[in-house]
Amino acid sequence: MNILYFLVGCSLFMALVFLLAFFWASKTGQHEDTCTPAIRMLLDDELKKTDEDQVQD
């Protein structure tokens, strides 16, 4: 059963990693605006030279 000591340590460590990841996310403001990114991902980043043609179609 000695393996349990190791596993307990592992599980605590993993949970700590997730906790720290959450801290990092909240510190970098990833929870601040939850609405705009959802819209932003639908927009094209790169500008196409043919924008005008598309409009006229």
Binding site: D44, L47, K48, K49, D51, E52, Q54, V55
Partner: peptide
């Protein structure tokens, strides 16, 4: 238009 930003209308 002069800045090629017409995607605005799409």
């Amino acid at each position: 238009r002069s800045n090629e930003l017409c995607s605005y209308y799409t």
